[in-house]
Nucleic acid binder design. Sequence first.
DNA 1: CTGAAAGCGCTTACAG
DNA 2: CTGAAAGCGCTTACAG
Lengths: 332, 332
Amino acid sequence: MKRTSIKDIAQAVGVSAATVSIVLTGKAKNGRVSKEMVEKIKVVAKEMNYQPNRLARSLQSGQSQTIGLLIADILNPFFANLAFHIQEEMRKAGYAVIIMNTDEDSQQMEEMIELMQCRQVDGFIIVPAESGEQSIQQLVDHYVPLVLIDRYYPNVQTSNVLIDNFDASYQATQYLIQQGCRNIALFIYDTRLPHMEGRVNGYMEAMKENKLYDDHFIKKISYKNITEDICKELQSVAEKKELIDGIVFGTNTIAVIALKQLFKLKVKVPEDVRVVCFDKSEVFDFLPVPIPYIQQPIQSMARMASRLLLEQLEDTESRNGSTYRLPAELIS
Amino acid sequence: MKRTSIKDIAQAVGVSAATVSIVLTGKAKNGRVSKEMVEKIKVVAKEMNYQPNRLARSLQSGQSQTIGLLIADILNPFFANLAFHIQEEMRKAGYAVIIMNTDEDSQQMEEMIELMQCRQVDGFIIVPAESGEQSIQQLVDHYVPLVLIDRYYPNVQTSNVLIDNFDASYQATQYLIQQGCRNIALFIYDTRLPHMEGRVNGYMEAMKENKLYDDHFIKKISYKNITEDICKELQSVAEKKELIDGIVFGTNTIAVIALKQLFKLKVKVPEDVRVVCFDKSEVFDFLPVPIPYIQQPIQSMARMASRLLLEQLEDTESRNGSTYRLPAELIS
DNA sequence: CTGAAAGCGCTTACAG
DNA sequence: CTGAAAGCGCTTACAG
């Protein structure tokens, strides 16, 4: 029942616990311990099926080899994928990942950060929720290794991994314009988070350049009432109350709900209205035409965030606070 | 930088660390510590922003308040959902969850179990991979709190949370028969895992009862070559080499890939072929008719598994080894 | 009512 | 080449 400890081995071999520890952690270089002893200890350790207690090691070393990952919405495939890849990257580097879901709630985010700190996580990768500046600023103030991903707070100096939201959205809008659309709406979350603002600005820039901009084209969707808000907006599109011939959907989730609704309302894509989405979705394969979309490089984002965190973890000097903007590509 | 420890508080207040510990863990009942002292310690702890080091507590208590969750395929929404709900349930009970993805590989499953044991997880919830009996048997032999979910090994005595696969599949097949189908295929993973066998048997039973059974109707799909295998089978359906008027798709993933392929091949559902799927998918909303499906009660499964694990965690006597089969409902 | 001591399992100087 | 000791931060008997 009880797991064998370093003491048990020490006793069995007839040496001190310290010697066992030195051997088993591979610190027995340059003849610190005789070859025969090293062999013997290793053999006995295997025989007794020794597995080190990482907790004890962590307490001693101050490193838990565990990081916390806070995701805003784990049921969104984009984030689920991100979590999956981060987990893989960190596992390769010897870290375990504790994932929690903040559900876009800064209050929960704060609680979860505290929870994870009690568990002595060595660092964080966080998809921050709106209005959570304070908790993140605290981490920064305490030099906690930290990378924000997908979003960031402009007033908090952190390392960030983002896509170029402005450019992505600009591309998406330009594409619709090139396809002949003139009345192009943007469906976007009603949030102050700057990654969404980047998407708004990219859209606006493209519209303005082409003298097509009008602010009533920007449809703010609330995260809480997402389905209702989208349906309401699309209803008026379907009823031609408002002339819309193109839509940029600002997120994955918005796009899928909207496409579903358009399908129900028998609004034809792209005949009646052209669209561009963020992120690929499985549902695209069930539409008669390919749906153009902005491809976020999920795996690169995960890899980059992991790399940045590992750098901070390994080199306590490297509090760079640099922002990486990965390009997102329009697939059409 | 350094976090404040119980010692720091003890020093600040002028008492021993033991007293602080007793107060902060709420063990200061029945006048063990004077009221004033309790107050003072609490105030100072708050002032110094004390957060207990759970690692140290865990080392002492032997309980990490962390469980390991091993999922077979985290990118499958069914499992992602399951993971999400388990996380929530366990969090409510004060446990953190470390999730890892075995990718249906028993070798990886074994490694990950070991990894998690080094981290002193208190128990496991596992979606076991094929041919992983040994590692699970070892956990059982060592009385490690453990619940298997979605699948189980008939020869290993564990607590299991399953759906009634036989009945689900029986219902699905009966439904197609009632709809007038006579040549009904089953698309199912080629695996010895008994939850899949349950689905095969339920199908067979329904077919045999109606004298429709023929073993060439059972289409084995390999997990590795899932897309190719499905396409091949559907190709022959489309070309009417084989007369098939109904298909039961044995899993979520198979269903979505197959529906996509049917759509491409312009095979009409349900005119050319009727189908029943396992689990709802977002893509159903893009088909002109509702798709009947077996609804697995994901949240109940998560809740039940968490409950069973918590029982084992709290009461070391309760190694019941009971199997819970939750009903799955046909939604049509 | 409170404190000193031992211990959870490990690692890291230090002494011999 | 090897061992004794101290300590990571906490908790739990035990003594007073």
